[in-house]
Amino acid sequence: MDMPAKPGVSANCRRMSSVLSLVGDKWTVMIVMVLVERPRRFNDIKRTIGGISQQMLTRTLKALDRDGMVSRTVHPTVPPQVEYALTELGYSLSEPLRSLGTWAGKHLELIDENRLRYDTAGNAQADVTARGARP
């Protein structure tokens, strides 16, 4: 017999899903790890990360600012300079991200081997199908 869901569980899952989709995004991870070192200006972040578009960097910084993980400080200069820094919440996110990075680095070689083995087996299966084995 299935137990009825607790009230609010699905609402909490949806809320948690939106947070996890942001913190699990590769650009979020890279931005947080770059800002752990020190506060930075927009172009410095873009240059340091490399490969991120201006639009994606803007979108991700806004999302991190909205969630309180990044602070945005506008300095009254001409032209105005904007600096981004991690908040206490952002620094707390950097801890599990570092652990995840350490795990990935430790297992990178094994994952590469597994991908190669899988891709090779997948290509062999595709060849069998292409030669006329019909489902």
Results as ranks from 00 to 15, higher is better:
residue 36 V to C: 10
residue 131 R to A: 01
residue 81 Q to I: 05
residue 116 L to F: 15
residue 44 D to G: 05
residue 123 N to T: 02
residue 18 S to D: 07
residue 67 D to K: 05
residue 132 G to I: 01
residue 90 G to A: 05
residue 24 G to T: 01
residue 95 E to W: 04
residue 48 T to I: 13
residue 118 Y to N: 12
residue 91 Y to K: 07
residue 54 Q to K: 12
residue 28 T to R: 11
residue 44 D to H: 04
residue 14 R to E: 13
residue 94 S to T: 00
residue 1 M to D: 15
residue 44 D to P: 05
residue 49 I to A: 09
residue 62 K to G: 13
residue 58 T to Y: 10
residue 21 S to I: 05
residue 108 L to N: 07
residue 98 R to D: 14
residue 134 R to N: 07
residue 35 L to F: 01
residue 45 I to Q: 01
residue 101 G to K: 00
residue 89 L to P: 02
residue 63 A to Q: 04
residue 95 E to C: 05
residue 89 L to K: 07
residue 134 R to H: 10
residue 118 Y to M: 13
residue 64 L to D: 09
residue 129 T to R: 08
residue 29 V to K: 13
residue 95 E to G: 00
residue 81 Q to W: 02
residue 34 V to T: 06
residue 59 R to Q: 05
residue 83 E to M: 04
residue 45 I to T: 00
residue 17 S to W: 08
residue 83 E to T: 00
residue 95 E to F: 09
residue 67 D to N: 09
residue 93 L to A: 02
residue 82 V to S: 03
residue 86 L to A: 03
residue 119 D to M: 12
residue 130 A to S: 03
residue 10 S to Y: 01
residue 38 R to F: 10
residue 64 L to A: 03
residue 73 T to S: 02
residue 96 P to V: 12
residue 5 A to V: 01
residue 26 K to H: 15
residue 100 L to T: 07
residue 61 L to M: 02
residue 92 S to N: 08
residue 27 W to K: 14
residue 134 R to W: 06
residue 118 Y to S: 14
residue 48 T to R: 14
residue 1 M to A: 14
residue 121 A to G: 03
residue 135 P to M: 00
residue 40 R to A: 08
residue 62 K to Y: 11
residue 3 M to W: 10
residue 134 R to T: 03
residue 53 S to F: 08
residue 41 R to C: 04
residue 108 L to Y: 12
residue 2 D to W: 14
residue 85 A to L: 08
residue 54 Q to G: 08
residue 112 D to A: 12
residue 87 T to H: 04
residue 7 P to G: 07
residue 19 V to S: 11
residue 19 V to I: 07
residue 98 R to C: 08
residue 24 G to A: 05
residue 2 D to L: 15
residue 61 L to H: 03
residue 115 R to W: 06
residue 114 N to S: 14
residue 38 R to W: 11
residue 27 W to G: 15
residue 44 D to I: 03
residue 59 R to M: 02
residue 55 Q to R: 05
residue 15 R to N: 13
residue 51 G to S: 03
residue 2 D to A: 15
residue 103 W to M: 14
residue 24 G to D: 03
residue 65 D to S: 11
residue 35 L to A: 03
residue 109 E to F: 11
residue 18 S to F: 08
residue 22 L to Q: 09
residue 46 K to W: 02
residue 6 K to P: 12
residue 56 M to V: 10
residue 134 R to S: 13
residue 129 T to V: 12
residue 134 R to E: 10
residue 81 Q to V: 11
residue 82 V to T: 02
residue 47 R to Y: 10
residue 111 I to S: 07
residue 41 R to M: 08
residue 67 D to R: 14
residue 88 E to I: 12
residue 128 V to P: 00
residue 18 S to T: 04
residue 88 E to P: 13
residue 86 L to T: 02
residue 112 D to E: 12
residue 54 Q to T: 11
residue 1 M to T: 15
